[in-house]
């Protein structure tokens, strides 16, 4: 048996700073026709350790992709910061900024859109290496290795995107992301467009690659089962704010926030009639507009437990237990 290195109480070593820290991030978008700005992300904090997957859950429009894009430096936050190993790329000189950015890669939902239709599979994967000054034979050798690793053999090397299936294209995207030898990959709905049997292959591949390389993932999906499958920790978002976060086991098995509960209850279950005992609670209404979010708790207009206080006071993000936070005034009483 190996000794587990989780420290005893009192002698706990100071935890290393997380690989990625998102600190009180605020991203607003210009509203249409002089309306209020869209408060896509409104004070979100999170952290991702090395070799760890953090899952982001929330309905569409909750700000998941916006957080992903801010992490990648594709948009500049209105306030707050994204720090990679303690450094904020926006405050670094260009060279250093590019170096930090190289260590964060992305795999998007649409496997097709991200690939250049004129490039062969091999060229697509070797391209990110051009910038690193690696010589051509070495680039091609590395591309071949990566393609091999993601399960695409020699038969696929010279194909172009239109000659590949959706799952194969997503493998190319993963190989391409790996080419820069990143520490973190942002997966934004990376398996959402795939049929289930292909989705299973890609999820297996992501788990294996993480175990082999100590990669970290920011894993974004609207599908809670997929997020729960891959993540070590999860953060639940609603209208640009964190409702709850913690270890996946805790959040999924003992949801503390009414919104997390509602999401889990809405999850369709492939179970026979006699195992569907409890009647699920269906959340009423639609998500309000992020241009005019409700006062107080953003979830209050749909919350079955809302009281007067919820309309007046924004619930603070509180620590329920170490590593577990919740933003509901009444989390303990539910």
């Amino acid at each position: 048996m190996t000794t587990v290195s989780t420290a005893q109480a009192g002698t706990a070593p100071k935890p290393a700073p997380p690989l990625l820290e998102v600190d009180d991030l605020v991203v607003h978008f210009e509203g249409r026709r002089r309306q209020q700005p869209i408060r896509a992300v409104d004070g979100v904090s999170l952290g991702i350790g090395r070799g760890e997957t953090l899952g982001l859950i929330g309905e569409s429009g909750s700000g998941k992709s916006t957080i992903g894009r801010a992490v990648l430096g594709l948009l500049r936050p209105k306030a707050g910061a994204v720090r990679f190993e303690g450094e904020d790329p926006w405050t670094q000189p260009g060279r250093r900024r590019r170096e930090l950015r190289r260590r964060m890669q992305v795999v998007f939902q649409d496997p097709h859109e991200a690939l250049d239709p004129r490039m062969t599979v091999e060229q697509s994967v070797a391209e990110p290496l051009l910038m690193t000054g690696v010589r051509r034979p070495e680039r091609l050798r590395r591309a071949a290795d990566l393609l091999e690793r993601v399960g695409l053999g020699d038969a696929h090397r010279y194909r172009r995107p239109h000659e590949l299936s959706g799952g194969q294209k997503q493998r190319v995207n993963i190989a391409r992301a790996l080419a820069s030898d990143p520490d973190l990959i942002v997966c934004d709905e990376s398996v959402s467009a795939l049929d289930v049997s292909i989705q299973a292959e890609i999820l297996n591949l992501l788990v294996d690659l993480q175990d082999e390389r100590g990669l970290s993932y920011l894993f974004i999906s609207h599908d809670i089962s997929v997020v729960a499958h891959l993540s070590h920790r999860v953060t639940v978002l609603y209208l640009g704010m964190v409702m709850e976060s913690g270890a996946v086991g805790a959040v999924v098995d003992r949801p503390a926030h009414p919104y997390t509960r509602a999401l889990l209850a809405a999850q369709p279950r492939a179970l026979p009639s006699y195992l569907r005992t409890e009647r699920r609670e269906v959340l009423r209404g639609d998500i309000p507009s992020p241009a005019a979010p409700p006062s107080g708790c953003r979830f209050r207009t749909r919350c079955p437990f809302a009281r007067d206080r919820c309309a007046q006071e924004i619930p603070a993000v509180r620590e329920l237990e170490p590593g577990r936070t919740v933003a509901c005034h009444f989390a303990e009483q539910l």
């Binding site: 289930v196 049997s197 299973a200 089962s225 729960a228 891959l230 996946v248 492939a270």
Partner: peptide, 9 residues
């Protein structure tokens, strides 16, 4: 093939 809430990795 489908991940479920309990299939954790």
């Amino acid at each position: 093939a489908v991940p479920r809430l309990g299939t954790r990795r």
